[in-house]
Design a binder for these strands. Sequence first.
DNA 1: ACCCAGGTGAGGG
DNA 2: CCCTCACCTGGG
Length: 307
Amino acid sequence: MRGPNVGVRSAARVQVLPVAPPYDLNRTLDCGQVFRWQFTGPVATGVFSGHAVRVTQEAKGVRVEGELSPQEIVRLRRYLGLDEPLADIERQLCRDPVLARIIPTTTGIALMRQDPWECLISFIISTWNNIPKVEQSLAKLAAKFSDSPVEAPCPSPECLAGATLRALRGCMLGYRAPYIQQVARAVASGGVDLAEIGRMPYEEARRALLTLPGVGEKVADCMLLFAYGKYQAFPVDVWVKRAVERGYFRGRARTHRQIQAFAAARFGAIAGYAQQHLYHYTRTAGRARLGASTRPVTDPRRRRPRS
DNA sequence: ACCCAGGTGAGGG
DNA sequence: CCCTCACCTGGG
């Protein structure tokens, strides 16, 4: 195994991956689908395929710094959604009058193709939680249980399967600790095969995910959308629920079921993209407009370590 | 001190 | 189905 002292910084390979408009790296990494990329100005830092990586969007494309093989670059393209047909998708979505009004401020969001395991852990932790704390929990998990020289975004199932509840609770997981331990054991033992679930048709995959502890409809839909590329999935969290109620039902309350049924009928095979735009809009530009917020947006990525 | 935060699971109508 | 509640925990 390669040591950590290869000099990722000085010997970093740099290349620019061409990308078609309207792709927006910043929005893609910051719209809530992934938790482990840190922004310093326009530069996003993260880990991909066991390598420290920096990505920046430039005029010519996405600049990538990191020790990535050609094959890993291919996978990175897919991970970042660089080849998503966004112009076409957004054109379709803009037939909807509400999205037509929203998309000018959210254009360029691409659905990523995340590692199912990392995605699962991230969204189990996200339940009834806030984003800064989710990020802290994941960082602590990685620091505490990481089994490779370069800190992975998320420790392996085997690693977490061996963790004690007490140690897991030390990562600010609270009542989610048993869920994490149980899914880790299920996946590590082979009883649950996340890759196999990804190959199932949408409904079947959804049912399989819903059997996992700590996984309800919202988390299952996030897996389907962010890890498995099943774009008919429409995760309904409080923000999206509110956005749909305000945008399409004159602010009248709808049940979770009604929201899902509406999204399926209205957006069909690209409901997941509609969800991303609605979500991102309500959390940013739409805040003042929707008037539902009681506190200003704080940017969790600009946290400074306290002394 | 008290409230909130990107849900889930269990229990009842 | 729909509704209600408890639930770990750090930060406003």
